[in-house]
Design a protein around this nucleic acid. Sequence first.
RNA 1: GCCGACUUAGCUCAGUGGUAGAGCACUCGCUUCACACGCGAUAGGUCACAAGUUCAAAUCUUGUAGUCGGCACCA
Length: 937
Amino acid sequence: MEIAKSYNPKEAEENHYRIWEERGCFAPEINENPDARTFSIVIPPPNVTGNLHMGHALQHTLMDTLTRWKRMQGFRTLFLVGVDHAGISTQLMVTRQIKKDEHKTPQDLGREEFTRRVWDWKNKYGDTITNQIRREGLSADWTRERFTMDESLSKAVREVFVRLYEENWIYRGTRIVNWCPKDKTVLSDLEVKEDKKKDGKLYFLQYPIANSDRKITVATTRPETMLGDTAVAVNPEDERYRDLIGATIELPLTNREIKIIADEYVESEFGTGAVKITPAHDPNDYEIGERHNLEKLVVMNDDATMNEAAGADFAGLDRYKARDLVIEKFEELGLLEKIEDYEVVLPVCERCKTVIEPLLSEQWFVKMDEMRDLALNLMREENSPRFFPEVPHRKVYTTWLENLKDWTISRQLWWGHQIPAWYDEAGNVFVARTKEEAIEKAGSENLTQDQDVLDTWFSSALWSFSTLGWNGEVTETEDLRMFHPTDVLVTGRDIIFLWVSRMVMTALKFVGEKPFSDVIIHGTVLDKNGQRMSKTKNNGIDPLDVFDKYGVDATRMTLADSATGTDFAWRDEKVESFRNFANKIWNATRFCLLNSDGAQVDYSYLNPKAEAQEIVRELKGELNELDEEDEEFLDKVDPIFAKDNPKENLSVADRWVISRLNKTALAVNKALETYQFHEAVQLLYHFFWDDFCDWYIELVKDKITSEEPNVARDAARSRILTIIEQSLRLLHPFMPFLTEELWGKLPNVSNELHNAAYKSAEQTIMLADYPCGDASLIDERAEAEMQAVIDLISKVRNIRAEMNIKPSDKPAIHVAANAEYQNIFAQNEAQILKLARAESLNLSESLDVPKASAKAVIAGAEIAVPLEGLIDFDKEIARLEAQLTKLEIEATRLNGQLGNANFVERAPTEKVEEIRNRVAEIETQTGALKLNLEALK
RNA sequence: GCCGACUUAGCUCAGUGGUAGAGCACUCGCUUCACACGCGAUAGGUCACAAGUUCAAAUCUUGUAGUCGGCACCA
């Protein structure tokens, strides 16, 4: 067989994905079992404008690993993918492009033409990220791919809006909102981030009191807003100002007069204890304004320039120019008391980083109190969703819900779901699913639709069920019945509020059930210095580059190897080690294939009992009353499993590796059940590399490379191939491409190895049965015996290395042990001689060797390697003393424990017994070492 | 201000009451017929610090220091 010397990921990645998709392997319909349990997962929809980043790669790896694992277990799986329309980002991107190409603004084109252009852009470039997702190997059902602007999903959005409005859970109102003057749209609280500015200033402005020569000083970080002041507030308890309450201020730079009012909100200790109140430009001032019936004077335009209400001197000025001018004028008037340096925290737009302007405006809101209670009750009553890791996310989630404010859902954009509200000429609002319905409600055809669109997250909130066909008109579909609630959501911390919580609320409200059972919150991939990756820092690592350099499988392993929920610093060395692992798997398989004549993949080489059970099943048809015909039945089975049957005739090493394999399979499944991906990765890595490659292959190498065909050789070859086949299946959810590539090269693999649900599908490892591990094949005795052999070989190798014995020199090995251990070593003599590179193995009850021997002790045996003329006595003494010291330190500690009456009395008896045994073992070994040392001195 | 997490080998990280682990890097030795992306053998840690609970603490409790995150406030 031709097989390359090293693994080339590119070829495998290009071929297999296309084939899997073409054959429909990703679609749940591939599962033929009508009673199959289902497993479903929906992707957190990335932005249609987006590019794949490491966070996606991590998230997608975890989702796909779970999906592939469940699929192999025979679940009817759905991994649903799609993208969202990313209102602001997409509109900005297309706006920029039109400006560049045609020197036009969206307004020049008009709404209809502009949205057409956005669709053009989407159709042309919108599949960038989905193609990148294919590259990752995600086993997603592309026939069910969704987009938040799809007709049915849009219909769902309108339906939800109308119903919430009808129940008064959506309302329109005038509030202080977060306004981005660059994007010219309102933003929800969650889309506003903070930016610390060390070089901020606090300005102290003096306001003259009317009919008096007194002044009151207010402190502010935004002097320009004083043009919109409609009061100054002080704390009613503040002695300094008590007599001024109710006094009139002649507001400088304006010809307005404002009052001094008293409000508990003001903290006397802060600043001057007097606060200028600008109800139209500050959320707290707005509250005070409401309490005191203050005028709400808007002095800014939507682009953060001052408007006419700010006065002729200021109208048209940018907010920062206006600030300078206000200060200049105050200085001229002698009313600028001082300017202090002050660290300010500015709210900025998450996307464009422009400083947010709090602005009084009319918007649509979702009232969150009842919505919130739906989610809180679900958590209280069913502890759902379950967060992984539970700490801290469960608490963060519930605390956030408890303090939730109403959600601003309108956006001043053209790209998105236009709000289904129409106005008649009198300004009356009619919320309806369609214009026709609105006309009917209004009794008039002269209606104009609300110009705004809905927050993208409003449509994402419906993702778990709108993607499965729910749109208000259609509320029951086969997909909903089968796949909703989904099983697990995998997402990042930053999206718990924006998306996770809102999906919970809307699913409960509209489908009457939770959207998912479990939520995995994965960690953040940091750069190698532990810094967050960001465009501004330009320290991002492009997953596509990593795929090119190390392969997709190695990248997936690297990502899956991070502890669930924990941030980790990206290290190229780590991907490299998994690239090496992939190559190791490739070469181990290659080696076995180069020696595979006469061999076949056959699970009964690992588990003869399974074959016996299979025969039992087959014979059951003939032997209806099995119990009564035991003797006759056993006669039929026994000859097949006679002692000379190669499937039955297992060596210690065979039983050892089979035990290790099954322990690994059991533990991997257990780890995946609790989303401990890194645990599974570590188990597979160490089983395959350490147990299987470093020991088992080496132990059976002579046998399987034998030129001469015989039953024992072919059995060994079959066994090793079968272990590889099992390992590839175990690894497949993590390393889909490599495992598929190799699996297809093994002799006698076919769709017969598929899970029962996929028997008639074309052969592929992704539909093979996932090994669940067989506890009955765990053989502790074989593991203990094999450990003794490994220890013996390791000690001899150690002696060889320390004593600088040339590889070509083959010393004799003398071992003193009891009959049981002698027997174990005798059974493995050939392997011991080969792996320790020794001439002979001499077993006896006690050692009788020349003084010039290197010695070692292991549990149950003493080892000596005679090294006439080769031994360096000083070095040997140092070696033995090092071993002795190690053991004595341990003995001191353990004897200390045993000497403690409280320990012996209170610790569990097994523990005490264990330590006594260990002390006895150490005594034997130290005794031997001391005698050896004596002999050398 | 409130809540929370983290601190373990040179680096990146596992490890929730019973002998401190991995990968990488380091040191030494190997062109051993699958693999130098390899094989073999070493070395390396007061588990941040302090007190407490316990027969027993990296692990539980409290405090301290440092790092980071979320929320709130920010005149």
